[in-house]
Structures are given as C-alpha cells and as structure tokens.
Simulated assay, not measured.
Amino acid sequence: MPKRVDHDLRRRQIGEALLRIASTRGLQAASMREVATEAGVSLRLVQYYFHTKQELLLGALAYLGEQLSARVEAHIRALGMPPTPRSLVYGTLTAILPTDAESRRLTRTYAAYYALVLAEPALAADHGATYPDLLERFLAGHLRTAQRSGQVDPDLDAPTTAAGLLALTNGLGSSVLGGQRDGDAALAILTYHLDRLFGGSPGGSAAGPAPEAS
C-alpha cells in the first residue's frame, strides 16, 4: 500500500523551517528554495503546499502564534502562582521577554516579521496583527477582572493599558536583542511597572525573577 501522507504535519514542517530561517537570518532573503533546503524537502513540495511566498509567510506566522501561546502557557504553569489576574498578566508578559533561549528565538522571529512588514505592508494587512490583537484582548480581560475585584484602579482604561503593557514588553525585548540591557534588567523594569499597576493589591506579588519554562 502507498504510504499515507499527513498533510498537516508536512505543512507544519515547511512552515517551521521558515521560522528557523527567520530567527537566524531574517526573512527578506528567505526564498522558497531556501525553505525547501531547510525543511529537507523538494522545492516542488513547498510550492504544492504554499503556492506563493506570501502564503508561506502567513502560514508560518500562524505556527509562530501557536508556539508563543504554548510558551506562555508553559511559563505560567512553571511559575506555580495561584491563577489571579495579576499572576496571569505577569506570567504572560514575562513569557514574552527574551530571558532564555526559547523566548529569544521567538522574539527574534517576530522581529524578522516586523522588519519584513516595513518593506511589504501588505503582509500586515493580511492577518499580520491577529495574534497581537488577541493578546491585547486577553490582557485587557484580566485587567477588567482585576478592576471588578478592586485590585487595580476602577477608572483604568483596560484596553489602552493592555496595549501599553504589551508595547512596553516588546520594546524591552528589542532592547535586550539590541544589547542595550540584559534579560534580568528588562524583567526588573517590567516588574516595576506591574507593581505600580497592581501595587498593594491582593492576589500575590509579581515581584521576583520568573523561572524558565520547561
């Protein structure tokens, strides 16, 4: 009998090959042929699953979002904190900071996509902001829960604050990759702002360095 092909697995294999190229060499020069070589498949097979480079970029971006989601979930579990709004916001944002090998890889890969969007704005128009938007809504939801329980200022604009926290975290990540500061310094800055936001509230302190997710 002919061997059955797992098409979803094959697509993921190709998409994740692109992500490896993005994290090490960037995306501007990443051709379909280079992706085929990285994935260990033929160029024709890459073109069978992804008809254009744009389709490949967007498909791989969805896999990157899944990887970041898995990183956040594992990191929050590793913290071992009670699931309060404060600990979930803290765990999510500190998972994104490039403080270990996995988070540095994810940050470099997202940075490669950001750099590509500057040259190809159409990429952002086609679902490029889907995951950041979901993340902002996730953070805003926990901030609203914290408002209802009196943990943060009831007059806080939760969506704007969530967007600001995510922008702060992304900016700190860029400063770590650029060598301006190390991961511990970035973590201290983020913790300072979260302590000011949740300062004196119930639900456990966000202070202290986060252990790496396994």
Score class of each variant (00 low, 15 high):
L56E: 08
L57N: 02
L58K: 07
L58Y: 01
G59N: 07
G59T: 04
A60R: 05
A60K: 00
L61D: 12
L61S: 07
A62D: 15
A62N: 09
Y63A: 03
Y63G: 00
Y63K: 03
Y63L: 14
Y63F: 15
G65F: 09
G65I: 03
G65E: 13
G65L: 07
Q67S: 13
Q67H: 10
Q67D: 13
Q67I: 03
L68M: 13
L68K: 05
S69T: 11
A70S: 11
A70C: 01
A70V: 02
A70N: 12
R71L: 07
R71S: 05
R71K: 12
V72F: 02
V72A: 03
V72L: 04
V72H: 00
E73D: 14
E73Q: 13
E73T: 14
A74D: 14
H75S: 15
H75K: 04
H75V: 03
I76M: 11
R77W: 10
R77G: 06
R77Q: 15
R77P: 02
L79E: 15
L79R: 15
G80H: 04
M81W: 13
M81Y: 14
P82A: 12
P82D: 09
P83F: 00
P83A: 04
P83Y: 00
P83R: 02
P83W: 02
T84Q: 04
T84I: 10
T84W: 08
P85R: 10
R86G: 11
R86P: 03
R86Y: 06
S87K: 04
L88P: 05
L88M: 13
L88Y: 02
L88H: 10
